[in-house]
């Protein structure tokens, strides 16, 4: 069974392809890290795959109706928008809208999903707080809890750990691992190569709109690719804890 299949997905901005003939498939149980320098097309790839942008090629997601899609895939955008001073609970409950919340009274299933999501993101104590009055990192966790409450087979998250403290970065990545363990899948764009190497089951590397590597973190994060795509050198070690990668210098400069 496949959760997502892209065939020659191309997204144009004007005449220029921002995402250029990318083919990709996601099966259940994966945490796929989407890495690449700024402007590589990571966000555009995810939005194109969702059908939120006009595109060429085929995506299994954009073939769904908006309602079906909302029950199959969750989208967590990078812009952390909370427009109104609503409570954390209200915000997280928006994740249940695809199942009818808001049209009817909340079902027991909705209440359970909201509590589970708050619990996973360590937010139970914030439940009645006003979301817009929380700190930036706390808001990011609230928005992630909203995405978790949607409980879809697939989650696409755009830089969800940016701006989180180290403990919550690890918590977030572990939540993704647990989702994968339960048979769901996560596609997550990341700039932290250390987290990507340590927590992702698979990495997809993009550069200038093209998919340049797809495989196990150890293979994708080769010194050659780090130099040619990111322009950096990194210290790397295979430890009993897994692969450790720490960027050290620009590849042009002398160590």
């Amino acid at each position: 069974m496949m959760l997502l299949a892209l065939e020659d997905l191309t997204v144009l901005r004007g005449e220029v392809p921002v995402v250029d003939t990318v083919s990709l498939s996601i099966v259940p149980g994966e945490v796929v890290g989407l890495i690449g320098p700024n402007g590589a097309g990571k966000t555009t790839l995810m939005r194109g795959a969702l059908g939120l942008l006009p595109h060429r090629g085929r995506s299994t997601l954009s073939a769904l109706t908006p309602g079906e899609r909302a029950r199959f895939v969750t989208w967590l955008p990078q812009s952390r928008e909370i427009a109104w001073p609503v409570s954390v609970e209200t915000l997280v409950t928006l994740g249940r809208v695809p199942y009818g919340a808001g049209r009817t009274a909340l079902s027991a299933e909705d209440a359970r999903a909201v509590s589970a999501a708050l619990d996973q993101m360590d937010l139970e104590v914030f439940r009645q707080r006003i979301a817009t009055r929380l700190s930036g990192g706390e808001q990011a966790r609230v928005l992630l809890a909203r995405a978790l409450a949607q409980e879809t087979p697939l989650l696409l998250a755009d830089e969800p750990v940016a701006g989180l403290d180290p403990a919550h970065q690890i918590t977030t990545m572990e939540v993704f691992r647990r989702l994968a363990y339960d048979g769901r899948s996560v596609v997550v764009s990341l700039h932290d190569l250390g987290l990507a190497a340590r927590f992702c089951t698979r990495l997809v590397m993009m550069d200038k709109g093209r998919l340049v590597a797809d495989g196990m973190p150890g293979e994708v994060l080769s010194p050659e690719r780090l130099a040619s795509v990111f322009g950096i050198t990194a210290w790397r070690a295979d430890t009993p804890e897994g692969l450790v990668i720490q960027p050290t210098a620009l590849s042009g400069s002398a160590p």
């Binding site: 909302a70 812009s79 427009a83 928006l94 808001g102």
Partner: peptide, 20 residues
Amino acid sequence: ARGLDTLTLGEDAAAALGTH
């Protein structure tokens, strides 16, 4: 009402939540 509620999260997230 429901569509406006989802817009609290921005246009992109609202669209992905099924709001037309």
